[in-house]
């Protein structure tokens, strides 16, 4: 393809090709601090392309392709090329990666132990992880957490953090502007702006962490903590995993072990300050 870039996030080596220069330039900016091995073959391919040649210039719209595609996925305007790249990368991992069990969850780590947060879009799991990652935690990822089936360890997938709507201002107030990507307003997912993880989090991205606490955050409502049984945590995580079924017995073994060995709680919080206080409290009292 005309323009391309190679990016390694956690264990996955991507190559991303594009019919336009702009999305690749935006990725170069976002991923400039990531370690890069130019000789490493790509595990996964993402293509950003124009459906018709003239659509590269006339009302340019970015179709997302790659090893795996979603049929009938709507294209995005070129101004949202970075979001298209992010969606393409997520898709390849969600549908193609088999080495680890994938959880749609954010994670942060401290002293080699991981806090894993799973929830729907809008639960605040990304924002909590981003804010904790600016404190004395290591950000492991805001979208995927990888569980190694044999050891049970959590592995990081620290892609550029996708901040949405109100979270943008909350995080932007705390970080150097050089660590933020361009603001993409009015995307199908609302306003989006990417945050480059801290250099130490990127440097440590291959270091596994032992799962110590599972949280299921819910943004909105009064502050509350609810202990969660193994069964409920198990069912919620099967729903949050994109490859649980494909992994078969190995996935079942990894997930049962995770919920048996890791205390789990649901938390509700009205604002991020309260949310972080609840997280720190549970980490001090209940984490393994």
């Amino acid at each position: 393809m005309r323009h391309s870039i190679r990016i390694a996030v956690g264990p996955v080596q991507f190559r991303i090709g594009s019919d336009w220069a702009a999305p690749i330039a935006a990725l170069e900016h976002l991923y400039r601090g990531y370690p890069q091995d130019e000789t490493r073959p790509a595990d996964a391919t993402v293509r950003l392309f124009a459906a018709r040649p003239w659509r590269r210039w006339v009302r340019p719209s970015v179709h997302i392709g790659g090893d795996f595609v979603v049929p009938d996925a709507l294209p995005l305007p070129l101004s949202m090329g970075l979001l298209a790249a992010e969606m393409g990368m997520n898709l390849q991992v969600a549908l193609g990666w088999r080495r680890h069990m994938l959880l749609h969850a954010s994670a942060v780590a401290k002293d080699g132990r991981a806090l894993i947060m799973s929830g729907e879009s809008g639960s605040g799991k990304s924002t909590l992880a981003a804010l904790l990652g600016e404190g004395d935690w290591r950000l492991m990822g805001d979208e995927f957490t990888l569980i190694e089936p044999v050891s049970g360890d959590a592995l990081a997938f620290p892609r550029g953090v996708s901040l949405k709507n109100e979270a943008i201002a909350a995080v932007a107030a705390r970080v150097d502007a050089a660590r933020l990507g361009p603001l993409m307003a009015g995307t199908p997912k609302g306003d989006i702006r990417h945050l480059i993880p801290r250099a130490d989090a990127i440097a440590a991205m291959h270091e596994p962490a032992r799962p110590a606490l599972l949280l299921f955050p819910r943004f909105g409502g009064d502050a509350a903590i609810e202990p969660m049984g193994e069964g409920e945590a198990f069912v919620r995580l099967t729903e949050a995993s994109t490859n649980y079924v494909a992994l078969g017995e190995a996935g079942f073994a990894a997930l049962t072990r995770l919920v048996r060995e890791t205390p789990a709680f649901g938390i509700s919080y009205p604002d991020s300050v309260t949310g972080i206080a609840l997280v720190e409290q549970l980490w001090a009292e209940a984490a393994k």
């Binding site: 190559r15 790509a42 391919t45 090893d67």
Partner: peptide
């Protein structure tokens, strides 16, 4: 060559 694998895997 190691980069030949990109296309082969793709």
């Amino acid at each position: 060559a190691s980069r030949d694998w990109d296309g082969v895997i793709g």
